[in-house]
Design a protein around this nucleic acid. Sequence first.
DNA 1: ATCCTCTTTCTAAAATAATCATAATAATAC
DNA 2: GTATTATTATGATTATTTTAGAAAGAGGAT
Lengths: 256, 256
Amino acid sequence: MTTLAVERRNQIEAIINTKKSVLVAELAEQFDVTPETIRADLFKLEKKGILIRTYGGATLSTGSGAELTFKERDVVNAEVKRRIGARAAALIRSGETIFLDASTSALYLARNIKDKHGLTVITNASSIVAELSECENIKLISTGGLLSKRNMSYTGRFAERMIRENFAANKFFFSCKGVTEERGLTDASEEEAYVKQAMMDVSDTVIFLCDHNKLGRKSIPVIASLDRVDTVITDVRLDHEWRNTFEGLDIDIITV
Amino acid sequence: MTTLAVERRNQIEAIINTKKSVLVAELAEQFDVTPETIRADLFKLEKKGILIRTYGGATLSTGSGAELTFKERDVVNAEVKRRIGARAAALIRSGETIFLDASTSALYLARNIKDKHGLTVITNASSIVAELSECENIKLISTGGLLSKRNMSYTGRFAERMIRENFAANKFFFSCKGVTEERGLTDASEEEAYVKQAMMDVSDTVIFLCDHNKLGRKSIPVIASLDRVDTVITDVRLDHEWRNTFEGLDIDIITV
DNA sequence: ATCCTCTTTCTAAAATAATCATAATAATAC
DNA sequence: GTATTATTATGATTATTTTAGAAAGAGGAT
């Protein structure tokens, strides 16, 4: 044996995570083993819930029904979020201080600011810290707090106090679970909502990264009413109703 | 015998730390011993928690594809720190709250508490957060603060305030650059020193993870005088002078 | 739809490779 | 010298991969 079986399965896992699907024949050739061996590998990985076997190969498991973990959410609508993140990054000027929440959209934003200079970034997302930790030109601050393992974000009253008592920022970029006119901005968890409220309260400008999935959706924990938002960045041409709602609240609309 | 057995094991440890996985057959040829000998080596290294044996070889115990942190390439000291970390972990009882600083020794400690229950861990080290982020049984809190990119630790007045105003703990485990009788505990950077001072001030018991490299070494930023320490865990049999120093200050000595 | 063909999957057995248990041997320590 | 430890040798056991033939799916042509 030239490589470890477990190592091969790890690599298959990595491949499917980036390519979203794999072919048995392709992997068999790549690792120089028979298709039967690959099928056995895929069977094991399926039992671990990593992928779903299909005729001829396998696709990424979408964690059906249950709450998506952070890693899984990352790939849903990645292209849309990437576009929104890139547009949002263009709003940031050098020397500014910005808050980023623990949303996937904010992570995509972070990927677009690596070469900006004199920036201070404050976030409660450990993924954003990891993403920017090698940027010498960015002053990177974590809010700290209790680690929420599902989101890999820092939350709770510690995070909230840290934000309110120590920081202020020019801009706050965030996303959330849903938005409706009557209930406003709502999120999946109360703890995240508190953190976002705090960041909102100490920021000059509030920018909502709003892909089409958020529109009309609502959840229980309320972050704030819609009028707290200054700018919305979205990926769809808004219908008349939404356009009227946003314009009535004096919210700038950016479509990407 | 052409090489010492323990030396061969150290080399295997070094190889797996850089290559992330090893093959029994490969190592057997490389060291010109039988596969059985290599298997015995891997068995010993597995018991020490360095690697995980798999069919045909072994992989690193710190998750596949995982990153090696800054100082972990120093394999010889790694073994010492691992021993100290394991001994320190034995001092922790379930239900306790502990502070861990951003030292390599504390990281090794963290690796030994993954199956303890009801623990609350507060740390300013992003490596420790990453290490424990999958432990559902551990309440994990980050101090937050400005990210020091060299150490991947959170420091500064934000971290210090967070600690002093929000937390308290049963035990504080730390290491530092050096210790001498006259100057006490000293560290490489002032920022780290402030964080350690704060953690010390709000902890019941202070436990110093002190491998032999620290003894007699000194640096500029002072953390605290030696009498703030309650327990020292060290890897060498202390000479009379050090023993008298510690015992004179009523410090417990644990040798591993 | 049914039939046909090609491909993939499944199953079980055989082949290969690695591990384990144990005893024997070699090296080192006391 | 003996005691202790490390290494090797051997055969039994177990894990993995391959092989090969049967069953089932996909897709096109009739």
